[in-house]
């Protein structure tokens, strides 16, 4: 724990952390939305029925 603390203390402007993270999240979110929207229709229909198809 001390080892990590020591090096982290050297970082200036720690508040950049949340901003970077927000950016990472937005990027990921946009990618996921694009993937979901462009997903193959047949695949989506098949996946949807999975809980019902077997027993």
């Amino acid at each position: 724990m001390k080892l990590a603390t020591h090096y982290l203390q050297q970082i200036e402007n720690v508040d950049i952390f949340p901003i970077i993270s927000l950016f990472i999240f937005m990027t990921l979110f946009v990618l996921v939305v694009i993937r979901a929207v462009t997903a193959d229709k047949k695949f989506i229909e098949d996946a949807k029925k999975m809980p019902l198809s077997n027993d």
Partner: peptide, 16 residues
């Protein structure tokens, strides 16, 4: 006894 409303929505809301 019917499939989930939107599978696309489930993908997006899972990751988010």
């Amino acid at each position: 006894n019917r499939p989930v409303y939107s599978y696309r929505l489930s993908i997006v809301h899972f990751w988010a």
